[in-house]
Computed example of a mutant assay.
Amino acid sequence: MARPLRSLAAGLALGAAALTVAATPAGATGTGTVTVIHGVPGATVDVCANGSAAISDFTYKSQKTLSLPAGTYDLGIVPTGKPCTASNYLATASAPLAAGENVSVVAYLTTSGKPTLGLYANDLSAVPSGQGRLVLSHNANAPTVKVVAGTSTLVPSLAPGSQAAVVVPAQSYSGVNVEVASSGAAAISNATVPVTADADTIVYVVGDSSAGYSTVAQSIPLTPSASVPGSVVTGNSPVGTTHDLPLAGLAGALAVAGALFGVSLRALRRRRA
């Protein structure tokens, strides 16, 4: 185990890069897929698109997937029942959607406790047969974390708003520690998570220290392929103050890294609101 853990740690440290997704060109045709995830605790909202309510009575930890024509959408969330007007918006974002694209939009709390919308272009590239891609998305009002297995640092820095992904054989994994990056204090350890073959499993960590932390899982089927393994994704966001993180679901998501052999790293992060 020590050898692949060291290889993974080296790949994570050397391969980080940023990728900005371009806006959909005017006149684009076809449809794309948008999944909206509600990660703001204690609020029931309506999701607005171009000034009209697209999803009503949206509750915490819910998700909804929509097929929409390609184009650019002005998105916002308002308290449920309120008109979709500027004075009512809790958070807004402009979301370009290309034909055939799969995008996730996550409403969550920043490290200052304010609602925001995070936009992510999901990786639809095939993974080797019998493997799956696990994506961890840090959308909680919590500090940057790192993931350690023994003496190897697997994920040195996962900031709020960032994502990290690994491609591994489809099975359940366990056995890593998650620490607050700024202090080294242990937050969680030793949990399990199943990885589905030929699919993306995206685990969104949401919530805050007062309401508690939770996870929301999204699954995206992929076309089976014998292609080379996919990548690890990461990004940077402002770091908040240190909290204790009772994130059992986060430990399970990150535990998959313990069995990874030779993974590379790249960024697919969508521009945030």
Results as ranks from 00 to 15, higher is better:
Leu5Gln: 13
Ala9His: 02
Leu12Asn: 09
Gly15Asn: 08
Ala22Met: 09
Ala26Tyr: 10
Thr33Phe: 11
Val34Pro: 01
Gly42Pro: 00
Asp46Met: 07
Val47Glu: 06
Cys48Val: 01
Cys48Glu: 00
Asn50Leu: 05
Ser52Ala: 15
Ser52Val: 13
Ile55Gly: 01
Ser56Ala: 14
Phe58Gly: 02
Phe58Asp: 01
Gln63Val: 10
Gln63Trp: 11
Leu66Cys: 06
Ser67Val: 15
Ser67Gly: 09
Leu68Glu: 05
Pro69Asn: 05
Pro69Gln: 08
Pro69Thr: 03
Tyr73Ala: 09
Gly76Asn: 00
Val78Cys: 04
Pro83Tyr: 10
Cys84Pro: 04
Thr85Ile: 10
Ala86Thr: 12
Ala86Trp: 01
Thr92Asp: 08
Ser94Arg: 14
Ser94Tyr: 08
Ser112Asn: 07
Ser112Gly: 14
Lys114Leu: 10
Pro115Cys: 02
Pro115Trp: 04
Leu117His: 09
Gly118Pro: 03
Leu119His: 04
Leu119Ile: 15
Tyr120Val: 15
Ala121Asn: 10
Ser125Leu: 13
Val127Asn: 04
His138Glu: 03
His138Val: 00
Asn139Lys: 04
Thr144Ala: 13
Lys146Gly: 11
Val147Gln: 00
Ala149Cys: 06
Gly150Arg: 01
Gly150Val: 00
Thr151Val: 07
Thr153Cys: 02
Leu154His: 05
Val155Gln: 04
Leu158Ala: 08
Pro160Trp: 07
Ala164Lys: 06
Ala164Ile: 09
Val167Asn: 09
Pro169Asn: 14
Ser172Lys: 05
Asn177Ile: 07
Asn177Tyr: 00
Val178His: 00
Val180Tyr: 05
Ser182Lys: 12
Ser189Tyr: 06
Asn190Cys: 11
Asn190Ser: 13
Thr192Ala: 15
Ala199Tyr: 04
Asp200Cys: 12
Val206Arg: 01
Ser210Trp: 02
Gly212Val: 02
Tyr213Gly: 00
Ser219Lys: 10
Gly230Ile: 02
Ser231Pro: 03
Val232Thr: 10
Thr241Ile: 09
Thr241Ala: 15
Asp244Tyr: 14
Pro246Val: 01
Leu247Gly: 05
Ala251Phe: 03
Ala251Ser: 12
Leu254Thr: 03
Val256Thr: 14
Leu260Glu: 13
Leu260Met: 12
Phe261Cys: 15
Gly262Phe: 13
Ser264Gly: 15
Leu265Met: 15
Leu268Asp: 14
Arg269Ser: 13
Arg271Phe: 14
Ala273Thr: 14
Ala273Trp: 09
